[in-house]
């Protein structure tokens, strides 16, 4: 079956900026959520997503169409997020003496507590689990984290994840197994 992106990709490669705009519109949410799942907050995720689209736009003429546009864009976003995390770690290491009270993630959690229609206890419980997952995933090596996120939160098939991460499907399965069991350990420790 023909991929619905193919026509737009061909047009965009020929220099049709409108076609690329349509592709951006089609993937803006997916890219933002993947960036969020990888960097952990929407403020940084927004920058990562915009950077990913910029990289895609810049490198589109070199896109050989051996994989689908979606897989290619996911790969770019994953790489952009990994690069961002690395540079953030460096920044954090450079400013360890600064207070962490202005943490953006904290603000997001407070917003969720305000907005949600669930009972407060349930909300706290959900947030605790979410926070635990987030913290555990943050501690994972970049590739393992990306495999974990793509599998659990983006429902990507193992083969596609292997293509996105440019590794073997067996490696992807190993990443997912190890990340899941690590989370299980963390959950046990929390209880």
């Amino acid at each position: 079956m023909k991929n619905p992106d193919d026509k737009l990709v061909k047009k965009a490669k020929m220099g049709d900026s409108g076609a690329f705009g349509k592709l951006v519109k089609r993937y803006q949410n997916k890219v933002l959520y993947l960036a969020y799942d990888l960097v952990g907050n929407y403020y940084d995720a927004q920058d990562v997503a915009q950077n990913a689209f910029y990289q895609a736009f810049k490198n589109l003429p070199f896109f050989k169409e051996q994989s689908t546009f979606s897989t290619w864009l996911y790969r770019i976003t994953t790489n952009a997020a990994i690069d961002f995390q690395r540079s953030r770690k460096r920044r954090q290491a450079a400013s360890l003496n600064q207070p962490m009270s202005e943490n953006k993630e904290d603000r997001e959690l407070i917003d969720t507590l305000k907005d949600s229609a669930k009972p407060f206890d349930k909300k706290v419980e959900d947030l605790d689990l979410k926070e635990l997952i987030r913290k555990t995933t943050e501690s994972l090596p970049p590739q393992q984290r990306a495999a974990f996120v793509l599998k659990y939160f983006h429902d990507k098939p193992t083969e596609d994840i292997a293509e996105i991460l440019n590794c073997d499907p067996i490696t992807v399965r190993g990443h997912i197994l190890r990340a899941t069991l690590k989370l299980k350990k963390q959950l046990k420790a929390e209880k």
């Binding site: 803006q28 933002l32 959520y33 403020y43 995720a45 927004q46 997503a49 910029y54 959690l109 917003d111």
Partner: peptide, 23 residues
Amino acid sequence: RIKPKPEMLDLYYQALKTKYPTR
């Protein structure tokens, strides 16, 4: 996943729309 704030989402969409217009 925690949903983003609508105003943040609007700003994000707007930024993309300005950089990459659909027309």
